[in-house]
Design a binder for these strands. Structure first.
Lengths: 348, 348
DNA sequence: CTGAAAGCGCTTACAG
DNA sequence: CTGAAAGCGCTTACAG
C-alpha cells in the first residue's frame, strides 16, 4: 500500500518533502534524513526502501531548510575587490575563477560571485557576508589597508586570500605563488642574457605580489653587484594601461635601459607598443619579461617571456584551505612554485 | 527594562534573532517582521523602536530561514555552458558577467556562478537548479539541441537566455543584439569600401548569433547582386583558434578574397596572424571586420573594425526579463541595436 | 495597527 | 537500528 504523491518533480507548487518520501518508503522521516545524510545505523532494507521512494517521488532536498537546521550554507563567496577593468583585461582572474569553480563543484559547494568595486557594492558585500549567507570567503588580490578586510576579519568570517594579506598574515590564510623566487628567476634570465640596465614595472606596493616581485628584482641586482637605480623602478597597478604609462616614464628617465621586468603580463603587454613607438626593438634592443602566464602572454607580439604561476594549483589550494579554516583550523600561508616560460620577448 | 542580548554581531555561535529584537523593542516579533519587510500597518512608534533595537542588537536576518518561509531564494544562477576556454579569451563573457553582477546587486539579488562545461558539472548543475536553489537562470550562449536546456525547461525553471534559443523561442525569454542588422551594416561597410570578394567566418550554426550574422551577410551580398560563393563561407566556433583555422581554409579555397567578416572578434583576432603569415596586408589587401567590441578588438594589431553590441544593455535587460518570468509573465524576445565601430583593420 | 499561532522542510539529540 | 519531538529563524494569514 503506497501513498500517492506528486509525480512531476520540479513542476507545480507542490514538491515532495521528506515526509512524502517517508510515507512511500514506510519509515519515519527521521530515517529518510539519515539516509540522505549518509549516517550510520540504517538497516539495508530501510536504505533500499528509502532510495526507491526517493527515485519514485523525485524528491530533492530543500537546501534552505537544510541550511536553517544545520547552520551551514554549503556555499562560498568569491570576492573580487579589484577595479572591474582588470577582470576583463587580465585572464588571471578568469582562470582563477574557473579553477575555483571546479574545485568547489567537486565538493558539492556553490560558488557565489561578489564583485565589490563600487562603494555601494562593498557595503552590500559586507552586509551579505556578515549575514552569514556563505560559509567562507575566497579573497582575490586583496590590498592591505582595505577597510573591508578589517570588517570581514572582525566579523569572524572564514577567509582565504590569493596572495598574503599584508598586515593580516596572522588572521587570514593565503595561497600565493613564489613571487620572490619567480621574480628572481626572471631577472637572472635577463642577466644571463647579458643585460645590465634592467628596469622593472612593479605591482601595487600594498599587495604581497607587488612587494615580493620587486624584492626578488632587488635581490638579484644586488647579488650581481649592480646598484638598484631608482630611475629604473616605476610603479604600476597591474593594468595594461599602467604598464604603458610606466614604460613611457622609464624611457624618459632611463633611456639607456636594455631590459624590463614587468610584474604582470598585462603591464608587460602595455609596455610593448610604447617600446615599438619609441623605435626600440623587442627583444634586440630591450628584452621584456612579464609575470603570470595566464593566457595573455602567448598572444602578444612578440610573445611574452614570463613567469608562470600555477593558477590551477592555487585555486585548488585556496578551496582546500578554506575548508580547513571553516573547520576551525588556524590560518596558514601556502606558497606554490613558479617557472620561467621563455618566449620571443626574451629568448633563451 | 531591556533584555540583554549578545553584542558582538557575527562573532560567536549566538547571533541575535528576530525574537531578541522584539524583546528589546518591546513588541511582538511579528511586528519586527513587518518592519523588516517594509509592510504596511506599523505605527511610527513601533517602527522607531524596532529600528533602534535592530541597530542595538546588530541583528541581521537569517537568509535561510527567510527562504524557507517564503519559498524564494533571492538568488539567480549565471549558467555558462560554453567550453571553458572561451571564458578566458573572449571578454564578452567577462563583460556580460560584470553587467549581470551589477544589475543583480542593484536589486539585492545574489549571483550564483555555475560553469557547466564537463558532463559532471552539467549533471550537478541540473540537480542544483532542479533543487530550486535559485529563483531563475541566466543562460549564456546556449546551443540549440543541448539536452540540459530541455531538462531545465521541463523542470519549469524560469530562464532568460542571451541570444535566442533556437527551437525554444516559445519557452525561453531572450535578449540578443541585432545580429542580422549588425552583420548587414558590417558587410555594407566592406562593400562601400569597394570590396567584392568578401568572405565570412561564421559562428556555430546552432546558435542564433551564428545563424543571424550569417544571414545578414547573405542578405547584403544578394541585395548588391553578388552571388554567395560557398568557398567564401567557413564555419567557426567563436574561438580565436577556430578563426585561424577558418582563415587558412579561406586562403586556400578563395585566394582572391579581399575582405573577411568574422562573426566574433575572437575569430577575427585569429585571422590576423594567418593573413600576415600569408603576406596579406590588413587592411590594404584584405579588410577584416569582427563582431562584439567587448574589449579585445581595440587591442589587436591593427585594431579591429567591428560591430559593437551593447553588453551593458543586454545584461540589464536579461535581469529585468528574468524577474518578469519569475513573476509569471510569458516569455518574450528583446533585441538591442548594434553599431559599427571603425578601426584600422577596415578604415572609413 | 498588533499579537498568537501555524507552518516552511529539514537535522539532531534523546529515548527506546 | 528506529521513531517522536524539539528546534533552526523566519513569514503570513487570521483574529482581534
Amino acid at each position: 500500500m503506497v501513498t500517492s504523491v506528486p509525480t512531476t518533480p520540479g513542476t507545480g507548487p507542490k514538491r515532495p518533502t521528506i515526509r512524502d518520501v517517508a510515507s512511500v518508503a514506510g519509515v519515519s522521516y527521521a530515517t529518510v534524513s539519515r539516509v540522505l545524510n549518509g549516517r550510520e545505523w540504517v538497516s539495508p532494507e530501510a536504505l533500499k526502501a528509502v532510495q526507491d521512494a526517493i527515485a519514485r517521488t523525485g524528491y530533492r532536498a530543500n537546501p534552505h531548510a537544510r541550511s536553517l537546521a544545520t547552520g551551514r550554507s554549503d556555499s562560498v563567496a568569491f570576492l573580487l575587490t579589484e577595479p572591474q577593468h582588470l577582470l576583463f583585461e587580465d585572464p588571471n582572474f578568469s582562470v582563477l575563477l574557473r579553477g575555483v569553480a571546479q574545485a568547489l563543484s567537486d565538493r558539492e559547494l556553490t560558488l557565489i560571485l561578489m564583485i565589490a568595486a563600487s562603494n555601494r557594492e562593498r557595503r552590500r558585500a559586507l552586509a551579505y557576508l556578515g549575514g552569514r549567507h556563505v560559509d567562507g570567503v575566497l579573497l582575490v588580490s586583496p590590498h592591505s589597508g582595505d577597510p573591508l578586510l578589517d570588517q570581514l576579519v572582525r566579523a569572524g568570517i572564514p577567509i582565504v586570500a590569493c596572495g598574503r594579506v599584508l598586515g593580516h598574515e596572522q588572521h587570514i590564510s593565503s595561497v600565493a605563488a613564489d613571487d620572490r623566487g619567480g621574480a628572481r628567476a626572471a631577472v637572472e634570465h635577463l642577466i644571463a642574457a647579458g643585460r645590465r640596465r634592467i628596469a622593472t614595472i612593479t605591482g601595487p606596493q600594498d599587495t604581497s605580489g607587488g612587494v615580493d616581485r620587486l624584492q626578488g628584482y632587488v635581490e638579484v641586482l644586488t647579488a650581481h653587484g649592480l646598484t638598484v637605480d631608482p630611475s629604473l623602478v616605476v610603479h604600476g597597478d597591474w593594468s595594461r594601461e599602467s604598464g604603458s604609462a610606466a614604460m613611457r616614464t622609464l624611457l624618459h628617465q632611463a633611456p639607456d635601459l636594455d631590459a624590463v621586468f614587468a610584474a604582470s603580463d598585462a603591464m608587460g603587454a602595455g609596455s610593448l607598443p610604447v617600446l615599438r613607438a619609441a623605435g626600440r626593438v623587442v627583444p634586440d634592443d630591450v628584452r621584456v619579461v612579464g609575470f603570470d602566464d595566464s593566457g595573455l602572454a602567448a598572444t602578444l607580439d612578440p610573445p611574452l617571456t614570463t613567469v608562470r604561476q600555477p593558477l590551477d594549483r592555487i585555486s585548488e589550494e585556496m578551496v582546500r584551505l578554506l575548508l580547513d579554516v571553516i573547520a576551525g583550523r588556524t590560518p596558514v600561508s601556502v606558497t606554490v612554485p613558479t617557472t620561467v616560460v621563455v618566449r620571443g620577448s626574451s629568448p633563451a
